[in-house]
Amino acid sequence: MSRSADPRGAMRRIALLVVTSAVATAALAAGTSPRFGFGKPVSEADLAAWDIDVRPDGKGLPEGSGSVMDGEAIYEAKCASCHGSFGESNEYHVLAGGVGSLQSAHPERTTGSKLNHATTLFDYIHRAMPYNAPQSLTDDEVYALTAYVLYLNDIVGDDLVLDRESLPTLVMPNADGFYPGVGFMSVDGEPDVKAPACMKNCPMTGKEISSLPESVRGAHGNLALQSRPIGYIRQGESMAEVQAAAAGGGAPVAVAELAPEALAEQGGCLACHAVVGSRKLGPSFNEVRERYQAEAGARAMLLAKLEAGGAGNWGEMPMPSVSYLPATDRERLVDWILSTPATGATP
């Protein structure tokens, strides 16, 4: 046992020796000398399901392979609805385009233009995509999708097949586009900006070079309702706004029950569903209503679906479980979906 590090003396060590003796035997057998020995000794193989990280040198890449050709179909089925068929959608992150533009006057910051190691693309798709069903892809599918996203960026040709040998050897166009921020990597790192602590007549003109653009005023709602209505300094864009908020002598602002549309927005439904109109990842709520409106038991079926998730009624893409929402909210949502008028207002 390593003892030198413990300043608190022998009593504690003795106690620890007693409590850890059982585990310590196992640990010693494995050649380590932990002070406490809590936690279960495991092998790297035990951790395989979690240990999926891939480094720039390729360490961590699994067996398997996938081609640009395979990737196309998988991408269309599982990615295009959010990222666009050509990786062009800026709904979330633009996956493709702008390669080589970063150092120009008009840099286009996309996944493809920024990417410095293809391993990072593999690692991320593997662990986090598709967004609605992370860690559902097979290793072959991840190889194929990595190849396909690179192809969408014209970084590779359409005949590429990737596996653990070939992937780390690919050189990305932006390979030299990153360097470590050494000054930020430790508390004694050298700062890049050095400002003097001038106290009198400092070189500031007091000239206003920017103020809140008129176009964004009001974008954050009524500021007077965003802090407590007491004190001689109150929140509000003007005295009139402060005054209006305080009408009634500083009464609390009731937190109104969210309207169903707002609840659907809050609950994340609208990332995948339109209220009326065409399909996004899932059917529009209007389509759902039209299909089930007259069906007895539809309410219970939909409530069960919201709780458990599942696929097959509209396509292969699964609906994720939304059991994170309180049951009452799920009920309100289903009742609203089943009664949304065909011309219902889009939030």
């Binding site: 990280d53 480094r55 720039p56 992150h93 970063l102 150092q103 120009s104 840099p107 910051r109 996944t111 920024k114 990417l115 410095n116 190691h117 391993t119 990072t120 690692d123 991320y124 986090a128 030299d176 586009g177 990153f178 360097y179 470590p180 921020g181 930020f184 990597m185």
Partner: peptide
């Protein structure tokens, strides 16, 4: 590791068009 959260995101885009990371 050059993970997505320290390369594609959370890296500082500098005036020379390169990224300062970590």
């Amino acid at each position: 590791w050059n993970t997505r959260e320290e390369s594609l995101q959370y890296a500082d885009f500098m005036p020379d068009g390169r990224y300062r990371q970590y």
